[in-house]
């Protein structure tokens, strides 16, 4: 690791202000992704601001019947929370499908939203990667791309978004609460939080310099049946090739969000409009505009089959 200074923030406002004013400063929460990347010198912060002691580790009801999840709530605690298990089971299921027990004990809600792609070219500093080194090119598009995205891609980047949690949050219409370097607070809809790569794949989210995630809020529960189906190369502790979050709502509306196949948590209104016409129709709508490589084209069929499996289970 490159040398860095370490400090603990005393308040969220102080943390945000310090992060904006110190060149190369980064927040550290669970650290499970950031420290991994620092060891590889993919991330080289000059200053780490520890935000673990700011009281952001609580889960509480909101006034409108939803839930506010502190940014520092650990993945284990969020998945095990009684209200989440009961009312937002798709979120519990998504969290439990990700990482390992050890990592979930450390990884946080805010950090999970900010985790970076596991594209092998991003991880290998000898390779070109527009996300890691803007303008250096993309080694993946004509390289080893089996695990990478088929949706939301660009000529600059096809890195897949790795999070399971974020797919469930996308389906639940979560909102990301932040405090900015100027002390102002705002809420960013999850749909607008993650950015497709376009021609600037190094810009991954809507956060401004110094802006700190303080909480994630969920609207009131949808009820119905919650499903998170993750398909991967081994039964546990692997990233998704394809994942599907689904809620068959009591209101008759069915919601879908997809992971493993796109550059950001993926949700398509047309796919949900097609829900009553069955898995095949949903898959066709969800995969509209897909731009697979020869190596990851299988993800289209795998997505369709995963949806078919979910439908069969739902009908049974």
């Amino acid at each position: 690791m490159k040398p860095f200074a370490y400090s603990r923030a005393a308040s969220v406002e102080e943390a945000a202000s310090a992060a904006a004013s110190v060149q190369g400063a980064r927040f550290i929460a669970g650290g499970t992704n950031l420290l991994d990347l620092m060891k590889l010198q993919i991330e080289t912060p000059t200053h780490l601001i520890d935000v673990n002691h700011l009281g952001l580790d609580r889960i509480e009801k909101t006034e409108d019947g939803g839930l506010r999840i502190g940014a520092l709530v650990r993945n284990t605690d969020l998945a095990a929370d009684r209200a989440v298990r009961r009312d937002y089971a798709v979120l519990s299921r998504a969290l439990l499908a990700g990482a390992s027990g050890q990592l979930r004990n450390k990884a946080t809600t805010g950090g999970n939203l900010l985790q970076r792609t596991r594209c092998p070219y991003f991880y290998d500093t000898r390779m070109p990667c527009n996300k890691r080194k803007p303008g250096s090119g993309c080694g993946a598009i004509k390289g080893i791309s089996r695990s990478l995205a088929i949706l939301g891609t660009s000529d600059a980047c096809i890195a897949q978004h790795p999070s399971d949690m974020a797919v469930a949050l996308r389906l639940l219409d979560a909102s990301v609460e932040t405090v900015g370097a100027d002390g102002n607070r705002r809420a960013i809809p999850i749909a607008d939080f993650h950015l497709a790569p376009g021609d600037s794949p190094h810009v991954e989210n809507a956060l401004r310099p110094g802006e700190l995630i303080t909480a994630v809020t969920l609207p009131k529960p949808l009820g119905g049946t919650h499903v998170y189906r993750k398909v991967r190369d081994r039964a546990s502790y692997a990233f998704a090739l394809v994942s599907v979050a689904a809620v068959f709502g009591k209101d008759g509306k069915t919601r879908f969000a997809f992971g493993g196949i796109a550059t950001k948590p993926w949700r398509v209104a047309e796919a949900e409009a097609a829900a009553s016409r069955g898995a095949k129709a949903v898959a066709e709508a969800a995969l509209a505009g897909a731009a697979p490589t020869a190596q990851n084209a299988f993800k289209q069929q795998l997505t369709a089959q995963t949806l078919a499996s979910i439908y069969r289970q739902q009908e049974a």
Binding site: G30, G31, T32, L35, D36, D50, Q102, L103, K106
Partner: peptide, 13 residues
């Protein structure tokens, strides 16, 4: 009291 990967956390934390 919770199991973690000690390689992915800083002692100062």
């Amino acid at each position: 009291g919770r199991r973690i990967n000690s390689c992915l956390t800083l002692a100062v934390m």
